[in-house]
């Protein structure tokens, strides 16, 4: 055994290690795997525990408040009667505008940048800027929106302003995830489509959009999950903190049946409602705040969970 090994090693002539030495070397190298895996495990556990502690703390504090009434009551001067009805309706409507503004723009920009834009210094500049935008503090978006939407376009402190502001915030996330999703389509599939005589538009429509749909959707949902918790920009553009009415309904039973008045309604959203309650001295309101926090976290979890599930579901039919 030793002899054969020695012969093999001699044949290679670069290594003069004995079998024993090789074995102990492998052992030493494998120790690094173990060290890294242990450190990684400890770190990830700490992160998860922190998150879990926060969440459990909110749930424990807010639990007595999380009832059916909490979701169907307007805010009130008396903590016990106060609820988040106007806040969750406001959040939903704002998110609707965010979705409608950011998704078409973001997906179209991503497709353009990836498929059509010539690759030169200008497209590089755009690329750097889009990535940067994703990292800009959200209050900056709030200030921009205050100048642009509230005063510039005179949209006021309304749902449409908030929706567009969060849309701006979400736009880079959608663009980046669209581009990532498109890039993951193998060149071979594109070439196959071009080789049968498809035009660029046909390739985009029949292949690129369809195969990157899962990735784009994931990006959209993650962007929305971020938008739902955003507070700073919404405060900046002047969301109200106490709203005891709902925006006018978009659909009515009498002519003309559809109304867009709700766009121009004042509003509040969940994180602002929570912020407002937190800043009150009365401890009873802090319970309401905790309950609202728990609701926001659960909503975020549901959205991210949906994103993962959808990605899995859609990717199942695509293997490359």
């Amino acid at each position: 055994m030793e002899k054969i090994n020695q012969e093999n090693l001699n044949a290679q002539s670069t290594s003069s290690k004995t079998l024993e030495e090789v074995r102990s070397m492998i052992k030493a190298h494998k120790r690094n795997d173990l060290i890294f895996a242990s450190v990684g495990f400890v770190v990830i556990t700490l992160i998860l525990l922190t998150l879990l502690t926060l969440f459990i703390d909110l749930v424990i504090d807010g639990y007595p408040k999380i009832t059916y009434d909490f979701f169907t009551s307007f805010p009130s001067r008396r903590a016990a009667n106060a609820g988040i009805f106007s806040a969750w309706v406001g959040s939903s409507l704002v998110l609707l505008i965010t979705f409608l503004s950011a998704v078409p723009l973001g997906v179209a920009s991503g497709i353009y940048l990836e498929e059509y834009a010539p690759k030169n210094w200008f497209s590089d500049l755009i690329e750097v800027n889009v990535s940067n935008l994703a990292g800009v503090p959200s209050i900056i978006y709030g200030l921009l929106a205050l100048g642009l939407f509230v005063y510039g376009l005179k949209l006021g402190h309304t749902i449409v302003t908030a929706g567009l502001t969060l849309g701006l915030l979400m736009l880079p996330i959608v663009i980046v995830s669209t581009r990532e999703a498109i890039r993951s389509i193998p060149i071979a599939i594109r070439e196959a489509a071009y080789a049968v005589g498809a035009t660029k538009w046909q390739v985009v429509l029949h292949h690129v959009v369809q195969y990157s749909f899962g990735g784009i959707l994931t990006g959209v949902i993650i962007g929305m999950a971020r938008a739902i918790g955003e507070t700073a920009p919404v405060i900046t553009i002047g969301a109200l903190t106490f709203i005891a009415f709902l925006p006018p309904p978009p659909i009515s039973l009498s002519y003309p049946f559809i109304s867009f008045e709700w766009l121009q309604s004042s509003f509040t959203v969940l994180p602002i409602q929570m912020f407002n309650w937190l800043s009150r001295p009365d401890h009873a309101f802090h319970i309401n705040a905790a309950a609202t926090g728990a609701v926001i976290i659960v909503l975020t979890l549901i959205m991210n969970g949906t994103a993962i599930w959808l990605r899995y579901k859609i990717r199942k039919n695509i293997k490359w």
Binding site: P186, A188, E191, A192, Y194, A195, V196, G197, A198, W320
Partner: peptide
């Protein structure tokens, strides 16, 4: 595109679209 409509190509690695068998041929 006109050229590719007259001269078709088969690649090194099979590269069917992630669609049905029928749709691949019909494309």
């Amino acid at each position: 595109i006109e050229v590719r409509m007259r001269i078709s190509m088969v690649f090194q690695k099979p590269n069917p679209f992630p669609k049905s068998i029928y749709e691949n041929v019909a494309y």
